[in-house]
Structure formats: C-alpha cells, structure tokens
Simulated scan of single mutants.
Amino acid sequence: MERNLTLIALFAALIAALGLIPKFTLGFGVPITAQTLGVMLCGTVLGARRGGLAALLFLVLVAVGLPLLAGGRGGLGVFTSASAGFLFGWPVGAFVTGLFVEKVRAGSLAVTSGIASILGGIIVVYGFGIVGMAFVLDKTLVEATLLVTAFIPGDLIKAIVAGVVTAALFKARPNSVLSRA
C-alpha cells in the first residue's frame, strides 16, 4: 500500500515536471505540452488503476491552486478553459493505457506500450478534449476535431517515446513496471 501511494505521488510529480518544458499555445487557447507523455507513462508503467490515480491526483493538486500545468497554470479556472476536456480525459486515458498493457502480453513491450499510449493517451484523451473544446468554444464536434489535428504528430512521437521508455525500464528493472507485474 505504501509503495503504491509513493508511486502514484511520484508519477503525479512526473506529470508536473514535464510541465516545466516550455509550452506552445495554439491560436485557439490549447497548449501543446510534454505533460501528456507523463499521462501515457502513468499507464504504461504503473498500470490501469495506479496510473489513473496518479493522473487524478495531479488534477486534484491543480484544482486546489497549485500552478502545475504548463506555463504555471492552476486553480479551478483551468477546468472551464478550452483545454478542460483534455484534462478530464487524463485519468481515463492513463487507465485505458494501463489496462491495455496489462491485458496484452504478446509481442514487444515497446510496441504494446506504444499502441496503448495511442489508444489511451491520444484517442481517449482527444475524445474528451474534442467534446470539451466543442462546448467551451461553441464549435461543432467536426470543427473541434479539425482544431486538434495539429496535436497528432507530437502526440504520436510521445506515444513512441512512452513505449521505448517503458521497455527500457522493464529491461533494466522488470519489477518497476507494475503494468507487467
């Protein structure tokens, strides 16, 4: 139990640390950040339950006002912005990513983790993000979907990185990749 709490807190801190990498904000108010890589790693390394809880803990810390999002943003106001849907999708995305890695045991862990990151860290998170953007920006779902196409190449790179990092960590310290425990 104590180890689980420590790892959940550590991965919430990883998401926060990745927010220190400078963000690039698109014209409609949604920033491109490295933090989604942290969400992907929460799932691929910690597994579904712990990964989802790490992302949820991060959002709770943001909600109480800690400036942990890229650019030093925090507080309840970020949950009403154009990027709010993406934020709400992070715990679910981490959970789905971890669940995929836990269930699919065949093949390379790097490939499995990369695919899991695409499913949970991109498709699920984008699903939440598109709905949130459509609502906040008063756009149709098609218009909001077209707005997020600029994110796809960067997020695919993050998914590949998550796969490679997870596989390397597993090779170096197999017991540290809890999604494979």
Rank of each mutant, 00 (worst) to 15 (best):
residue 12 A to F: 02
residue 72 G to F: 03
residue 78 V to L: 08
residue 47 G to S: 01
residue 6 T to K: 13
residue 13 A to K: 06
residue 55 A to R: 11
residue 87 L to V: 00
residue 24 F to M: 12
residue 94 A to D: 12
residue 18 L to A: 11
residue 159 A to Y: 00
residue 161 V to N: 14
residue 158 K to M: 08
residue 40 M to G: 04
residue 119 L to Y: 09
residue 180 R to V: 04
residue 33 T to P: 01
residue 20 L to T: 02
residue 28 F to Y: 12
residue 178 L to H: 04
residue 106 A to C: 03
residue 138 D to P: 05
residue 31 P to C: 06
residue 158 K to I: 00
residue 93 G to E: 02
residue 104 V to N: 10
residue 12 A to C: 13
residue 153 P to N: 11
residue 9 A to Q: 11
residue 74 G to Q: 04
residue 159 A to T: 01
residue 62 V to K: 10
residue 64 V to N: 04
residue 130 I to K: 03
residue 43 G to Q: 01
residue 12 A to Y: 02
residue 52 G to Q: 05
residue 164 V to S: 09
residue 171 K to E: 15
residue 36 T to L: 05
residue 42 C to V: 01
residue 127 G to W: 14
residue 16 A to W: 05
residue 47 G to V: 01
residue 150 A to V: 15
residue 28 F to A: 07
residue 108 S to I: 01
residue 10 L to N: 13
residue 7 L to F: 07
residue 143 E to R: 09
residue 36 T to S: 15
residue 13 A to I: 05
residue 171 K to L: 12
residue 26 L to N: 00
residue 51 G to L: 01
residue 101 V to E: 14
residue 138 D to L: 13
residue 45 V to C: 08
residue 164 V to C: 10
residue 177 V to G: 07
residue 149 T to K: 07
residue 127 G to E: 10
residue 84 A to C: 03
residue 6 T to A: 12
residue 172 A to E: 11
residue 136 V to T: 13
residue 141 L to M: 09
residue 170 F to E: 10
residue 87 L to P: 00
residue 1 M to Y: 03
residue 34 A to H: 12
residue 87 L to A: 07
residue 84 A to R: 06
residue 38 G to Y: 06
residue 63 A to T: 00
residue 58 F to L: 13
residue 158 K to C: 06
residue 181 A to N: 09
residue 141 L to I: 15
residue 60 V to M: 15
residue 92 V to C: 10
residue 143 E to D: 14
residue 65 G to T: 00
residue 7 L to C: 05
residue 93 G to Q: 08
residue 21 I to D: 12
residue 69 L to Y: 13
residue 82 A to V: 10
residue 99 L to R: 13
residue 62 V to I: 12
residue 60 V to G: 15
residue 19 G to Y: 11
residue 3 R to P: 02
residue 32 I to A: 14
residue 61 L to A: 06
residue 141 L to F: 07
residue 124 V to P: 12
residue 112 T to R: 13
residue 53 L to N: 06
residue 3 R to I: 11
residue 159 A to K: 04
residue 48 A to N: 03
residue 144 A to L: 12
residue 163 G to F: 07
residue 89 G to T: 07
residue 7 L to Q: 14
residue 21 I to R: 04
residue 102 E to Q: 14
residue 33 T to F: 02
residue 102 E to C: 06
residue 75 G to E: 02
residue 138 D to G: 09
residue 73 R to G: 15
residue 25 T to M: 14
